[in-house]
C-alpha cells in the first residue's frame, strides 16, 4: 500500500488508442445491458405495480427480488468489465 501521505511520485499513464477503443466498446455494451434491466424495473414499478407485489423467489415479492438483483447485477457487470478491459502496455 502507498505510504500514508501518498508522496510516492506518480508517472502519468500513456494509453494506446486501440486499447481505449476496446475498453470504451466493452463499457457501452455492458451499460446497455444494465439500462435494459433498470428500465424494466422502472416500467414495472410505474405501470404494473400490482405485478411487483406477486411472490417471486422464496416467497419474497418481485419488488424485493428485482431490487436486490439490480444491486447484485451492478457488481457482477463491474467484475465482468474489469476482466474484459485491456491495459495499455
Amino acid at each position: 500500500m502507498a505510504s500514508l501521505d501518498f508522496k510516492t511520485p506518480v508517472i502519468r499513464e500513456q494509453e494506446d488508442a486501440m486499447v481505449v477503443a476496446h475498453n470504451t466498446r466493452i463499457g457501452l455494451v455492458l451499460f446497455a445491458i444494465y439500462v435494459v434491466f433498470y428500465g424494466g424495473f422502472m416500467a414495472l414499478s410505474a405501470f404494473w405495480p400490482e405485478v411487483m407485489r406477486k411472490p417471486f423467489a422464496g416467497g419474497a415479492n418481485l419488488a424485493v427480488v428485482y431490487g436486490f438483483a439490480l444491486i447484485a447485477a451492478a457488481l457482477v457487470l463491474a467484475l465482468v468489465y474489469m476482466r474484459l478491459c485491456r491495459k495499455s502496455k
Binding site: 481505449v20 475498453n23 470504451t24 463499457g27 457501452l28 455492458l30 451499460f31 444494465y34 433498470y38 424495473f41 414499478s45 424485493v64 431490487g67 439490480l70 444491486i71 451492478a74 457487470l77 463491474a78 468489465y81
Partner: peptide
C-alpha cells in the same frame, strides 16, 4: 425508501462504464 437505494447504486454503472476512464 429502498427505491432510493436501488437508484443510488445503479448510478455507479454510468460512472464506471461511461465516465470514469475518459
Amino acid at each position: 425508501g429502498f427505491l432510493y437505494s436501488i437508484g443510488y447504486l445503479a448510478g455507479w454503472i454510468v460512472a464506471l462504464f461511461i465516465i470514469a476512464e475518459p
